[in-house]
């Protein structure tokens, strides 16, 4: 799982109401949700959201609500990966469960500039800034989460477990 794209930057404490306001939570469809994604950051920001972009955020990205619609909306925008200094915990679980690639790496967030082209190799946690050539090691996923990611998400992991129990 390797992603390459241009960096779009946001600040700290980007909450789930900014990512997707509650009034739109009447669907789980990624495309429908993406129409309102990041409305709280204004139209100028929304114009910069391009499919394949890599979103880079400071601390506590995704704080607030448990709405899974938040990572789904981001995925619906075509964002390939989110790199943050830290993630709020429910957002972190949700992103892994719905298959939005996320990586935690404060050093990278500090140094990267908007528009830089970067490559991310998800499971190895390796981030390369293709402009400066510098590489970063992200915080590794615990082995259990690697198991879920490799299974293709929590639902597939649970399916396998139920099958094992039946045997």
């Amino acid at each position: 799982m390797v992603f390459e794209g241009q960096v779009l930057k946001v600040g700290k404490n980007i909450d789930t109401d900014v990512i997707i306001p509650a009034r739109y939570l009447v669907t789980f469809d990624p495309l429908e949700l993406s129409v309102h994604c990041f409305e709280g950051l204004g139209e100028d920001f929304r114009a910069k959201l391009k499919p394949g972009s890599i979103l880079v955020a400071e601390e506590n990205f995704g704080c607030g609500s448990s709405r899974e619609h938040a990572p789904i909306a981001i995925k619906g925008c075509g964002i390939s990966c989110v790199i943050a200094s830290s993630f709020a915990r429910i957002f972190y679980r949700n992103a892994i469960n719905i298959g939005l690639p996320i990586v935690e790496c404060p050093e990278f967030v500090k140094e990267v500039q908007e528009g830089d082209k970067v490559a991310v190799s998800l499971l190895e946690g390796k981030i390369t800034n293709l402009k400066s050539g510098k590489t970063y090691q992200a915080k590794p996923f615990p082995p259990f989460l690697v198991e879920i990611i490799r299974a293709g998400g929590l639902v597939n992991w649970a399916k396998k477990r139920l099958k094992k129990e039946e045997k």
Binding site: F28, S66, R67, E68, I90, R93, N94, N97, I98, P142, F144, G153, L154, V155, A158, R161, L162
Partner: peptide, 20 residues
């Protein structure tokens, strides 16, 4: 503690979940 819909749906099937 709060979780998302997928965690909850899977827990409805298994009666358990994972926590750090």
């Amino acid at each position: 503690t709060g979780v998302g819909s997928t965690d909850l749906g899977v827990a409805m099937a298994l009666g358990e979940t994972w926590l750090k």
